[in-house]
Each structure stands twice: as C-alpha cells, then as structure tokens.
C-alpha cells in the first residue's frame, strides 16, 4: 500500500515534468540562427523594424528577435552579453560603449529631427525660436507659474540624453530642474510622455517618428513649436556586441542584419516607411547622404554631431567586414 502511494506520487511528478518540458519545447522558437536586437523604442514601436524584419528574414536564414527598450537599457543588455546588436540614438553613450570594448563596427543608419512640442496656445511663446532660447523661455514661464510646463522622459533613453544636453546647452542643469514644481519627470516611454505632456498642457522633447504617429491617431493635440534646428538632430546607429568579450554572441548574424540595414534595399525601406500613412518619411536614410555628400550642410551636421574623430567608427573599434566602411 505504501508502495502504491509512492508510485502515484512518482507518476504525478513524471507527468508534470513531461508536460511542462513538452510545452516549453513546443513554445521554443525556431532553431534558425537567432539574433537578439535590443532597440530604441522609436524604431520598433513605429513599426519600422517589423516591416524590415519580414523582408530580411525572407532572404536570410536568421531569426531576428527585437527587444524594444530605451537606449540606456539597450546598452546595459549589450554590456551583459544579452543582446547581439543594439540600435540606438545617443552618440555620446555609443562612444562610451565602443571605448569600454563591448561595442564594435558602429554604423550610422538613419536620422531625423527631434522637436519641442507643446500646446497650441503656446503659453511660453516659444514658437519658431531656437532650442536654447525656447528652453530658457520655458524655464522663466515655469518659475513664474504654478502649472506643470515641461514633461521630461526621465528614463535614461536616447531622447532623455538629448534633452539633458539641450538643457546644458541652454545653461541649465537638468538634475536641478527636476526639483522644481513645473518640471515633471515622467519616467516613461515616448508615447506615454507625449500623452502626459498633452494632458498637462505642457511642453516636451519628442522624436518625430512617435510624435507623428500619435498625432495621426488622434491621441494628442500637441503641436510642433521648435523643430529642424541643428541642435535637434537625431541620429540612429547600429553597434554590434564584441564576441571576444561575450563568446556566445551571434556576431556574424548581427553583422548580416547591419549590412542589410545599410544596403540600398534597407535604406530604401527606411526612406519609404510611413510615407503612405503619414505623407512623409518618419526616418531618413543616412548612408548615401554621408557617402555621396548630396546635401553638404546636412551631411556636415551629422558628422559634427555623431562622428568620433571624423569617422562613424574609429578603426580600432572595427573587426572584419571592411566593406562596411568603403
């Protein structure tokens, strides 16, 4: 009798283990070459990467796995060896990532502009000002009032990093501003932050991709007040994780996706994305612009902002794939 009870218990354990293992096995993704891409939210949440993924995977035996996080977390993932490739937009952080040995073969893939968006009635009267002037006006108006006037991402994302440097350029310390009543640190993604700014009738710094999507879908009524200035340039890059440091990283798989992104076809897809829906591109391809110098002032602007020692990737941070830097 005692044996029978024990037998039942063992049987139960076996059944549970078998069914759980079978389920896990069934759910496990394809055995195709897996490339984990930690990406900034704007590239994924707008739908761009999903569109590119389908075309890329049809031609390559690689399974792209996108993890949509902020630039700060994407770099953290990569440092721990949890991503094979990062798509980010914060040149200063990217340089740090190359310098600490984790990042290799950086390649600029696209650009667009950030914009300062805010309520239609524009309480601080910043319309068409330069970014630094506009921010100064917002600080003055905010300090004289009681309402929330600026919503910051506050999440160490690429946009947040841009915002911090804009505050610095305007002569303010964003860490100090956080303490003031009119300055709200949202700690949320771009979409959520736009909604908060819209709700409070406040200003915020937005990437154009997410902003246009939210306006198109009628989720916010904020308008663009300051845009297209050199200080608001937004440059997206791909950086591959060093496989010497993290041996399990899929280095070649990651690079075949980078090569696709900078190929004519990939660049074309970036340019075309969103045109049908929004009447304009959300992201502009950067490779041809930098190579042919078609628009010298704009190309120079990108170099000034996102190049290190007059190259997108200094030679000491390159491994193989010389064709990327022809």
């Amino acid at each position: 009798m005692r044996k029978a009870a024990f037998g039942w218990a063992v049987l139960l354990v076996v059944v549970v283990v078998t069914s759980v293992t079978a389920t896990a096995y069934y759910l496990e993704p394809s055995t195709a070459d897996r490339v984990i891409v930690s990406t900034t939210t704007s590239l994924y949440d707008t739908g761009l990467l999903d569109a590119i993924e389908a075309t890329f995977e049809a031609k390559n035996p690689i399974d792209l796995n996108f993890i949509s996080v902020g630039t700060g977390i994407a770099i953290q993932h990569a440092r721990r060896g949890d991503a094979d490739l990062i798509l980010v937009h914060s040149p200063r952080d990217e340089l740090g990532f190359l310098k600490d040995g984790t990042g290799l073969n950086r390649k600029i893939i696209a650009y667009n502009f950030f914009a300062i968006v805010g309520p239609e009635d524009d309480p601080a009267k910043i319309r068409s000002m330069l970014p630094a002037e506009a921010l100064t006006k917002i600080v003055e108006t905010g300090r004289n009032g009681t309402e929330t006037l600026w919503v910051s991402r506050g999440d160490n994302s690429g946009t947040h990093s841009k915002e911090t440097s804009l505050w610095t350029a305007a002569g303010f310390d964003s860490a100090t501003l956080t303490q003031e009543g009119w300055f709200a640190s949202a700690g949320s993604g771009m979409g959520e932050t736009l909604k908060k700014a819209d709700y409070f009738g406040a200003y915020t710094l937005a990437d154009m991709g997410t902003y246009m999507k939210y306006v198109k879908d009628d989720l916010i009524s904020s308008v663009t007040l300051v845009g297209q200035a050199e200080d608001l340039l937004n440059v997206y890059s791909a950086v591959v994780v060093n496989q010497t440091l993290h041996p399990r990283v899929n280095f070649d798989g990651a690079l075949s996706f980078v090569k696709f992104l900078v190929s004519d076809e990939g660049q074309q897809m970036i340019e075309q994305f969103g045109r049908a829906t929004y009447g304009q591109s959300l992201f502009h391809p950067a490779v041809g612009l930098l190579k042919t110098n078609a628009d010298p002032p704009l190309a120079q602007m990108i170099r000034d902002y996102a190049f290190f020692n007059s190259t997108e990737c200094p030679p000491e941070y390159r491994r193989g794939y010389p064709e990327l830097y022809d």
Partner: peptide, 24 residues
C-alpha cells in the same frame, strides 16, 4: 521574456506594447 514577436509575446506584454504604440 523580452516581449519578442512570435517567441515570448503574451497577452499582458502585448497590451503594454500596444498601449505604448497608441493602439488603444
């Protein structure tokens, strides 16, 4: 899980993602 499409995406992670995307 990382909310990866066709791999680790479940109901709650999709709800969070679609809310971020504005697909209310």
């Amino acid at each position: 899980g990382g909310n990866i499409a066709h791999s680790t995406r479940v109901l709650t992670t999709t709800i969070a993602l679609e809310t971020n995307k504005g697909e209310i």
